[in-house]
Amino acid sequence: MQQIINFVIRNKTSLLFLLLFGISLALTIQSHSYHKSKFINSANFITGGIYDKASGVSNYFDLKTQNDILIEENNRLRSQVFNASDSTSKIIIDSISYSGRYKIQSARIINNNYASSKNYLTINRGEKNGIKEDFGVITSKGIVGIIDNTSNGYARVLSILNTKSKINAQLKTSDQFGSLEWDGKSSSIVQLTDISKFAPVREGDTIVTGGKSSIFPKGIPIGVVDNFELDISGDTYIVNIKLFNDMTNLSHVYIIENLDSDEIKLLENPVDD
């Protein structure tokens, strides 16, 4: 017993190092498995508050660009409204499907990362605004990511520029779908994998969300096809997509809540015990 205690005292630095290294290794491994990184995230009271204060200052430098983006969006929506006045059918179908099943809130991005291979964003809306996990996040131009962690006043968004992210997407012109992933290289190019080689893919085609998950509605724009090649197996394409969104310059986003998602989940995952 004496010898064990002596051993611990003699090697206390090495043992402390091994203990702390083990803890951080465990945290790292945990953060690499989806939906488990609970402890270490920037959506808490302290870091959220600091980011909120800092972005309150830095937002002023970006006001001009953000105004231009807003005017552009208003322009598009206005032209939709005016042009729909004679043929009412098209716009009404859209607005019913939105107001019936999806609820939309606005939020501001207070921290944006795009340089590492696992990128997250922090937004200034949280549980007190009714935000929960698995809500979708979009801008006026296209999708941004999915909420994966919330605190009282802040929420963390798993960006589409994250190697863990997987989102259902499809071609705008046909219904062949695949999953949207990221290889961690360029912040403006993402990959659409598992799309059948019989799909009519052409360069310049638009890619939209597929509506096969309960998170995003169908038809939210993502980007255009930059180039594509056959997978090693030869059955599916890997399509490089150039994003509509400039992920390096985001400020105002919309959060989409699917009001039917509980019902859909209940149907898809029947009691499995």
Binding site: I23, L27, T28, S37, I40, S42, N113, K118
Partner: peptide, 9 residues
């Protein structure tokens, strides 16, 4: 790590 959402790296 907490500030940059990077687990324990």
């Amino acid at each position: 790590d907490i500030f940059s959402d990077s687990g324990g790296v």
